[in-house]
């Protein structure tokens, strides 16, 4: 990403976000100075605040990387929210049911998230490949189905007899992800996410699979005519995309909540779309973007508490950032080939 493009795109969007943020504070009757002070103090004011910001960063990073992979393949996966939830559900169900030693739990539970999210994303991929069903609508629908499916399970079969709310039994402490900063919620999930970003970048630029995937996204018809099995690519990319988001759900269960409930995500899967776009669909820039949005998420709560600016203002700003960035064309959409 060169300097001009950076300024025209992500950086411009961030500046716009700050201006709009100030406007939102004024609307709420708060001086922007106080508002921003509250926001940044809440996000970066001390080790605990920074740790919490990084917790939010991690939660956004996984679905954003998943979305990045799908978008690069020309597939509009709007379903990271549902994929994240199902990934968390699988990890929570298995983790609360079987006690495992730490090292086994680490791999098994992340794998559960991978499988759960992958299945959920894969449904949309198969529908696309088999029937040509538009993945935008199918992933949106699957988000709702995921919520009802998960809440049915935690209200019914998976509900912990000990729990007060609708949630699974807690995971045994041996299955919790190791904590990076003492007395915080920040686990090694952050490192897993960053490693995944590096791996993705490598896959995109160096491997044949990445080459095929990018070809499918940039020029679907040329890809189809030149050895890329588009049906297979659609299934694979949607599955992997969902799987990455699903790992994210699993790390929230094993690293933060230590149980599964349907309040797992306050909309990370949607915010992650903005993160992926601000990061220019480049895994490493997405890490930076996720940190920026992590500041907003963590600081927004503090801002609401101390400056009385409703944190939902942040959602509005994310939306505007998405709209501004969408003015550039990211991927050659495959809409011309689908009927839906």
């Amino acid at each position: 990403m060169n300097a001009r493009r950076l300024l025209a795109g992500p950086l411009g969007a961030i500046l716009l976000a700050l201006v709009l943020m100030a406007a939102a504070m004024l609307v709420a009757g708060v001086s922007p100075v106080d508002g921003f002070a509250a926001l940044f103090a809440g996000a970066l004011g001390g080790p605990n605040q920074i740790a919490e910001t990084l917790v939010q960063t991690t939660a956004l990073l996984f679905p954003a990387l998943g979305i990045c992979l799908a978008f690069r393949a020309g597939l509009f996966n709007i379903g990271a929210e549902g994929q994240l939830l199902i990934g968390g559900l699988f990890a929570g169900a298995v983790g609360s049911h079987y006690a495992m030693p730490a090292i086994v739990a680490f791999f098994v539970l992340l794998l559960c998230g991978f499988v759960g999210g992958g299945l959920w994303g894969g449904i949309a991929g198969v529908m696309r490949a088999k029937f040509g069903a538009n993945e935008i609508i199918s992933t949106l629908m699957l988000n709702f189905v995921a919520v009802f499916f998960a809440s049915y399970l935690v209200v019914g079969p998976l509900r912990s007899p000990l729990a007060t709310g609708a949630e699974t039994a807690p995971l045994p402490p041996s299955e919790w992800l190791p904590i990076l900063i003492p007395n915080s919620r920040l686990s090694i999930a952050l490192l897993v996410a960053i490693a995944l970003a590096i791996l993705l970048r490598f896959v995109f630029s160096k491997t044949v699979f990445g080459y095929d995937l990018r070809a499918a996204g940039e020029a679907p018809e040329a890809a189809r005519r030149n050895g890329v099995n588009m049906a297979r690519m659609n299934v694979l990319a949607m599955t992997l995309s969902g799987a990455i988001a699903g790992i994210g759900g699993a790390t929230i269960v094993t690293g933060v909540l230590h149980r599964f409930n349907t309040q797992l995500s306050p909309g990370y899967g949607y915010t992650a779309i903005a993160v992926a776009l601000v990061g220019d669909l480049d895994p490493l820039w997405i890490c930076v973007a996720a940190f920026g949005f992590g500041i907003l998420e963590a600081g927004g709560l503090a801002m609401q508490a101390s400056a009385q600016v409703p944190k939902d203002a942040i959602r509005v700003i994310e939306g505007l950032v998405i709209v501004v960035l969408a003015a550039r064309r990211f991927v050659a959409t495959q809409t011309e080939k689908t009927t839906a």
Partner: peptide, 19 residues
């Protein structure tokens, strides 16, 4: 539409089909 990936370099386009 059918032969080239327009944002790619000549190098990347050179092997399209034989990857």
């Amino acid at each position: 539409r059918e032969a080239l990936v327009m944002p790619w370099s000549i190098v990347e386009n050179a092997i399209l089909g034989r990857q």
